[in-house]
């Protein structure tokens, strides 16, 4: 067992526990976007930053990838951590302003302004979907491509993957495009949460490959009647 101090509280955790797990065990909330139980830690979103160490050597680390160490002093919500989180959220909000999950988190963290140019990306490159595909669905149909500015997630050559079983796991875990009916054209991707009077997916035979995760789906309900 490893003894460490989180926000002044002594806690003993098992070898190999991450700071995130230890803090959550004590009931300290740490927001994350790229962490999910059952998937390997990745440390992409940087929302789970915590401060470790003391004095001038205190530094920010991502708690989801940092293993608990004997005698470590962790602060999960001091001024520096909250400032860093606010900045991360502001940046995430700029890249994916339409994401409900990010909007809610920003609101909860009192982010009142958004000083960066909005990019309207539909991906924050958190890698949840690729890990879901690889580790839970054992498919490895999607992955990271390119690097830097042109880094993206998708199938090789942007064609329908032979490995993909259309399980929908990737869309289920996605924090940026959650519950978005993809339709067939990205421009018309937001269908208004199926509040449309005439949802495009009613003509089902036209969209064989379409995946919809509305539950219950209004269009399907209409179809039944």
């Amino acid at each position: 067992m490893i003894n460490l101090k989180i926000n002044g509280l002594e806690v003993s955790v098992e070898q190999g526990t991450t700071l995130l797990e230890a803090a959550r065990f004590l009931g300290f909330p740490i927001p994350t976007l790229c962490h999910m139980e059952g998937l390997s830690p990745y440390g992409a979103c940087r929302l789970c930053v915590v401060e470790i160490g003391e004095g001038p050597r205190a530094k920010l680390v991502s708690s989801c990838t940092y293993p608990a160490q004997e005698g470590l002093v962790v602060r999960t919500a001091n001024e520096r951590v909250l400032q860093a989180r606010k900045m991360v959220l502001e940046l995430l909000l700029a890249s994916c302003p339409q994401s409900k999950v990010i909007q809610d988190l920003a609101s909860a963290h009192n982010v009142r302004q958004q000083r960066f140019r909005q990019e309207h990306e539909d991906c924050i490159l958190c890698g949840l979907c690729t890990r879901m595909c690889e580790e839970q669905m054992m498919a490895k149909a999607i992955g990271f491509r390119g690097r830097g500015e042109t880094r993206s997630i998708g199938t090789p050559f942007d064609i329908k993957s032979e490995e993909c079983r259309l399980c929908g796991g990737c869309i289920y875990v996605c924090p940026a495009c959650q519950l978005r009916c993809t339709y067939t054209e990205p421009d018309k991707a937001v269908c208004g949460g199926c509040a449309n009077l005439s949802p495009p997916c009613v003509e089902k035979e036209n969209f064989d490959d379409m995946m919809c995760y509305m539950n219950p789906c209004v269009a399907c309900e209409i179809d039944k009647h």
């Binding site: 490895k140 992955g143 390119g146 690097r147 993957s161 490995e163």
Partner: peptide, 13 residues
């Protein structure tokens, strides 16, 4: 290996 890994390396460099 999976094709996506190889494609990832091929597009990274």
């Amino acid at each position: 290996r999976s094709l996506v890994d190889i494609y990832g390396v091929a597009t990274f460099y």
